[in-house]
């Protein structure tokens, strides 16, 4: 759905590496998790806890809660508000969250 602009400003490039569902992706320092996932071509972030229908970010400004993912073992984090960190493990969230993670 998205690609990076070809000539970014004063850039170090995609210097951060993280994993999404076990697959390595690269991100730019300063990316949010949602931005990095969109740039990497992830088109499903979660399925809903009600009917398990697929969802991806809708608002990217913290109000819609459709970008909820599990980050480093903690479920239901808003991917659009969390900055990427080296070594982060992101999982798409299927249905209801499991208590305890």
């Amino acid at each position: 759905m998205f690609k990076r602009l070809s000539k970014p400003r004063g850039e170090t490039g995609e210097a951060v590496s993280l994993k999404v569902d076990g697959k390595p992706i690269r991100a730019r320092a300063g990316d949010t998790v949602a931005g990095a996932m969109l740039a990497a071509g992830v088109d499903r972030f979660r399925t809903t806890p009600v009917t398990e229908s697929p969802r991806a970010p809708y608002c990217l400004m913290g109000v819609c809660f459709d970008c909820l993912v599990t980050i480093d073992g903690v479920g239901s984090r808003q991917a659009c508000l969390v900055p990427v960190r080296e070594g982060m493990a992101v999982e798409t969230q299927i249905g209801k969250r499991e208590a305890g993670r």
């Binding site: 249905g95 209801k96 499991e98 208590a99």
Partner: peptide
């Protein structure tokens, strides 16, 4: 009398 309740997000049955 007043009572208060806290509710969490939906979780898998536990």
């Amino acid at each position: 009398e007043r009572g208060q309740i806290v509710v969490t997000e939906r979780l898998r049955p536990f």
